[in-house]
Design a protein around this nucleic acid. Structure first.
Lengths: 122, 122
DNA sequence: CACGAATATACGCCAGTACGAATGTCCGTG
DNA sequence: CACGGACATTCGTACTGGCGTATATTCGTG
């Protein structure tokens, strides 16, 4: 393991970049769960109410296996709750804050689209 | 300003999935800009103050070309502003809301980490 | 105008990932 | 306990994205 070269310089105001990198890694991992349109649709669908896999597959107009794969990603990231109900498996949204975060990004998107439109018409 | 998506009572609760898919595609594109630790670090660094490419490269402890590539992604997504100052190019954060969104995800991350810890100790 | 510093881009390589098809697993029912 | 339905997982393939190396571009300076 390579040691840090300048570890004894005075403490900078920002935290050690190495640690910072690992921290951001975790956030990035969470963002990776959100960079897929179908997964976003799933999250919004679950924000309304819990749904079964088949329901979500129909909603996405995607094959069952594909839907299950996307749900597995969200499950591994801990973004959804799972509950077995008889023959089916019901998924639900665990953190409403995730929707709030995406909504914020959507607002930014709106501003940006307006900006681009403004540039074109100038 | 940003229009409020008032949940109009007469409308169907969900919009056409086809259109919805395209909308989410755009949001997903924006998330793709955030799913890279170094890009997140860049955004936070720019949230403090505008910085040049060399400065950011040093901060990331990454080669110049790599830094430029990441900046190109942020630039293409419209998340940063660019200004040429003499020999250098100064980047700055365009939308503070992006930081707010990431902070929200960070909160979710904290809850999730606490949750996992709790599960392990049970 | 030649030169060097700062930044951007092109290219090839490798890892990661979404997808469909096929298969495995769990559950309720007859 | 055999069968079918709902869901999960595996596998091979095609695509995408990040990286380093090398090269191009832009600008200040002598």
């Amino acid at each position: 393991m390579a040691k840090h070269t300048t570890s004894e310089a005075g403490r900078p105001k920002t935290i050690e970049p190495r640690l910072r990198q690992e921290l951001e890694e975790l956030v990035a991992e969470m963002c990776k769960a959100l960079n897929e349109p179908k997964r976003l649709m799933v999250l919004y669908a679950l924000a309304e109410r819990p749904r079964s896999v088949g329901e979500l597959a129909a909603y996405l107009d995607a094959p069952q296996s594909n839907t299950s794969q996307h749900l597995a990603v969200l499950r591994d990231r801990g973004l959804v709750d799972v509950e077995r109900r008889g023959n089916r498996v019901i998924y639900s949204l665990r953190y409403p804050k995730v929707i709030a975060a995406i909504d914020l990004l959507r607002e930014v998107l709106n501003e940006e689209i307006g900006r681009q439109h403004q540039l074109r018409s100038a």
